[in-house]
Design a protein around this nucleic acid. Sequence first.
DNA 1: ACAAATGATACCATAGTGGTATCATTCAAT
DNA 2: ATTGAATGATACCACTATGGTATCATTTGT
Lengths: 133, 133
Amino acid sequence: MNLLTRNTDYAVRALIYMAGKVPARVSARDIGRDLGLPGPFMRKTLQVLQKAGYLISTKGKSGGFELAQDTKKIRLVDLVTLFQGPVSMGDCLFKKKICSGIKSCPLRREILDIEALVLERLQGVTVASLIKG
Amino acid sequence: MNLLTRNTDYAVRALIYMAGKVPARVSARDIGRDLGLPGPFMRKTLQVLQKAGYLISTKGKSGGFELAQDTKKIRLVDLVTLFQGPVSMGDCLFKKKICSGIKSCPLRREILDIEALVLERLQGVTVASLIKG
DNA sequence: ACAAATGATACCATAGTGGTATCATTCAAT
DNA sequence: ATTGAATGATACCACTATGGTATCATTTGT
Ligand code: FES
Ligand code: FES
């Protein structure tokens, strides 16, 4: 059972890395090297972050990525959503209609409760709070 | 993101079904039919429950499965563990050593906190409580 | 011109999940 | 004794998600 995929984890680590970097602009290759992660995959991940507005990218020689937002505004829950889709712990149970015949099932309610707990927790975490912690 | 797999869900539903059944002994085929689930897969699931001691099985004609324990003693967390392995939300992060170089990482702590929350919640749920709820 | 970087895809390998099929064994009913 | 219905134990298959690589085009500083 995974709360975070590697994608999300790499993104968080890259963002933390970039937050403490001067000058701000870094290449995917460099981040990969410094964090010990596969460069090409790092790059794909950063491109997703760029499209989502978290990073600014610059092409060409001496190009790279830099933070586009205050790390206080980047919430963990949004990163999870970006890379893994909406946080819903009953995907296979409800969306795929396993329980279609059973209305107001107690197990369903139990799972939705837990989901709410997790969500609440994730919403309180930002990249900035991770750095500080 | 899935908290429960179908395996686990099927198991819970079968156990709830069996709790209200007289006579107690039921065949996998019958459970599958009544719950609208694939019979062979149901059977495989029940065999796991049997091996784990939750069910008693009887071979031969007019054989089948019946509950071996009080439903109050069957905890959801144990079923999840049985079918999906230990509840640990950082599987890919820690077991697979993504973060080997980073000690006392704040993200790790955050995830472990959430895991503890979920675990606590799951431990309070039994098959009996699901029926009552 | 050239090298270094991103943009955008396409591709591949692996593992997990959901599900079926088979064969052996047991046991009740006839 | 024979037969049918059930489990025990595996082996097998299909599908999907994930992690990761490769390619080609485009941009840009030197
Ligand atoms: S029966 Fe599966 S969640 Fe309700
Ligand atoms: S850097 Fe990934 S959990 Fe710590």
